[in-house]
Simulated scan of single mutants.
Amino acid sequence: MNEPVPKKRSITIMVGLPHLADGKLLDRARRLQQPVLVSANALSRWSTKRGWREWTGWSMSALANAAGLRSLCLDSAGFSAMSRYGGYPWTIDDYVRLAASYPFHWWASLDYCVEHQVAGDREEVLDRISRTIRANIDCRRRAEEEGLNGSFMPVIQGRLPSDYERCADGLGSTIERAGLVGLGSMCRRHIHGPEGLIAVIDHLDRTLPPRTRLHLFGVKGEALPYLKPFIHRVASIDSQAYGVAARAEALRTRRPKSDAVVADHMEHWVRTQRVRLHQPSRLLPVQPPPSEPVRTDDPWEDAIAQARQQMRELIESGDLEHDELTVPWIEQWAADIYADRMTV
Rank of each mutant, 00 (worst) to 15 (best):
T296D: 13
S109G: 02
G218E: 14
G170D: 07
A241H: 06
G16L: 08
E123R: 11
A250K: 10
P328M: 15
P293C: 13
L183C: 09
H215M: 15
D238W: 01
R213Q: 08
W46T: 00
E145I: 03
A199D: 12
A339Y: 03
A199L: 05
F217S: 15
G196C: 06
L325N: 07
W58I: 08
W106T: 00
R140S: 00
P18M: 13
P285Q: 04
D323Y: 03
G23D: 14
P209E: 15
L126Q: 11
E321M: 04
P89E: 02
G68P: 05
E313I: 03
E292N: 11
V125Y: 01
P103H: 08
L314Q: 10
I315M: 07
G87S: 00
E123T: 13
I330G: 12
L32Q: 14
T56N: 05
L148F: 00
P293K: 13
G147Q: 06
R213L: 12
G16R: 06
Y102W: 14
F152T: 03
A339N: 06
E144D: 11
G170K: 13
W300D: 12
D298H: 12
R308H: 10
G218D: 07
L216Q: 15
I11Q: 04
V38E: 10
G243R: 11
W269M: 15
R31T: 11
C167D: 10
R211W: 08
A250Y: 02
D298C: 11
A245W: 02
W55A: 02
T56P: 02
H268R: 10
L227H: 12
V234N: 13
N65S: 07
C73K: 00
Q332I: 06
K7C: 12
S130I: 08
T12G: 12
I337H: 04
I137C: 11
Q34T: 10
R247N: 12
S258A: 15
T343A: 15
D27P: 00
Q279R: 04
L214E: 07
V36L: 06
V344H: 13
L183H: 07
D138V: 00
D319S: 07
